[in-house]
Design a protein around this nucleic acid. Structure first.
Length: 120
DNA sequence: AGGTTGATTGTTTAT
DNA sequence: ATAAACAATCAACCT
């Protein structure tokens, strides 16, 4: 388990909270895979709204997290499964990313490939 | 090689 | 369209 630096390399480690909307460094990342939470929300968002029709953005968000924590491993299982499924899908994108976007910046061999790309 | 850190994912509603 | 909280994750980068 990646424990927080015993010394103090940096402070807050692991808890970025709402640390998004950040500038990406890599040219074109295949957008990693979604987390089990993402799938959980996609299915629960409507339920949360159903039980909290007047819940605001922050309220619903918090409720989602609380519910998620209350979820049993069995309940999260299907969500984790989807997360893994997306992971597999992301893996494919990742392969393409490394194949044509990482270092190689040459035109991909478009002739006898089974893959089909129309743009570019 | 191991650990840390940042970037990313999707949703909500309101401005 | 974006803002932040919610939890996960993981790939890259540094020591």
């Amino acid at each position: 388990m990646p424990k927080v630096s015993a010394k103090d390399t940096k402070k807050s480690a692991g808890v970025q909270a709402a640390a998004k909307k950040r500038a990406k460094k890599d040219p074109n990342k295949p957008k990693r895979a979604l987390s089990a939470y993402m799938f959980f929300v996609q299915d629960y968002r409507e339920r949360i709204k159903a039980e909290n029709p007047d819940a605001s953005f922050g309220d619903v968000g918090k409720l989602l997290g609380i519910k998620w924590k209350e979820m049993s491993a069995g309940e999260k299982k299907p969500y984790e499964d989807k997360a893994q499924a997306d992971k597999a899908r992301a893996d494919k994108e990742n392969a393409a990313y490394k194949a044509n976007g990482k270092a190689a910046k040459k035109a991909a061999p478009a002739s006898d490939s089974d893959e089909d790309d129309d743009d570019e």
